[in-house]
Design a protein around this nucleic acid. Structure first.
Lengths: 190, 190
DNA sequence: GTCTATACACCGATAGAC
DNA sequence: GTCTATCGGTGTATAGAC
């Protein structure tokens, strides 16, 4: 039952404009607004062009997410080689858009491709971070009790996500305390 | 521009069936599927009855969320008076459906009522928890360094949310380590 | 590579009968 | 309290001309 529809190249100006537009719409309006009409409009293109460059809406959203994880992995590789990797991991997390991450995590509920891509990305990133944090522990003579390097990798993600998301919703209770705790922890690696 | 539409009571069998159905649909299929037709079908009712019991879909979703935060607040009140409140807070968080929480947090991006309800609930819960944890600190002679009671309240939420959500997506990296850290922390209050 | 035209399903919401 | 009927709008996706 293959369709006879023609398909355009995957790395053209228009297809990249659609990926950029998809990210903006997801971030600012939520995945409920991530429709072919709205995304094409945001990209300044006609709705039907979405189906020239992508097989379906699910494919477009998956492509947008894959591009994002690819970029995240490239930043991670750089941070693994940084002078102060633990500081670098944290700075990177704080710079990531938590709204967009939450949209993708909710979207994953009904999008198997995105769910698998998230699982693969998180598992890989956590393993790499935990290894690097373990080395930093030894270099700085930090004890693994009570928090192992893997636990720290997990806590950095969970804490940065909730901090950013809450801040965007106008919740600030305890945020000062949490940031002080992070600073205290990072200081072990100065 | 008030509509002449008749409205039904807010606590009838059918309206509660709609709230229950809305939660199931949100949890299992995401907010993209939370339509009047789908929710009515899930409740075994006709689509038009949604508009007899609720002014709009936004009102229905807000009512479902308010019922949920109300129940959460009631559990919190009980846990504040429990023998081991810190253990009780954690046990409650672990029992909460993280899928549903993520759906509401994503929904909050485009639903002002839900966003405000989340902010109000989280701020209130965090304040109450932080006060109670502070008292528990004193009772058990636990020092506030490096983590203040408020920071602990924040971390318990962030950690439980991510643990549950990741587990539902098939991510388990570092989870054993994190649970060990939680156990270590809770043991201070035995 | 982009356009017009269009199919068909589903959406929120309303009016009025029973 | 629930029903039938219905409106205008929007969704994904396709076909074929330019």
């Amino acid at each position: 039952m293959a369709s006879s529809r023609r398909m355009g190249p995957q790395d053209s100006a228009s297809s990249n404009a659609l990926l950029d537009a998809a990210e903006r719409v997801l971030r600012n309006e939520g995945y409920g607004a991530a429709t072919s009409r709205r995304i094409a409009e945001e990209a300044g293109l006609k709705q039907q062009l979405v189906y020239y460059y992508f097989k379906s809406m699910d494919e477009l959203l998956l492509a947008a997410f894959r591009r994002r994880t690819q970029r995240g992995l490239e930043r991670l590789e750089r941070n693994l080689a940084a002078d102060r990797p633990v500081h670098a991991f944290w700075a990177d997390y704080v710079g990531v858009d938590a709204n967009l991450t939450f949209e993708y995590m909710a979207l994953a509920n009904r999008h198997e491709g995105i769910r698998k891509e998230i699982a693969s990305f998180v598992n890989k990133a956590r393993r790499l971070q935990a290894e690097r944090i373990g080395r930093a522990y030894k270099e700085k003579n930090v004890g693994e009790d009570p928090a192992s390097p893997a636990a720290i990798a997990f806590l950095m993600l969970g804490t940065s996500l909730l901090l950013r998301r809450e801040a965007e919703m106008g919740i600030t209770a305890a945020h000062k305390d949490v940031k002080a705790l992070i600073d205290w922890f990072l200081a072990k690696f100065d």
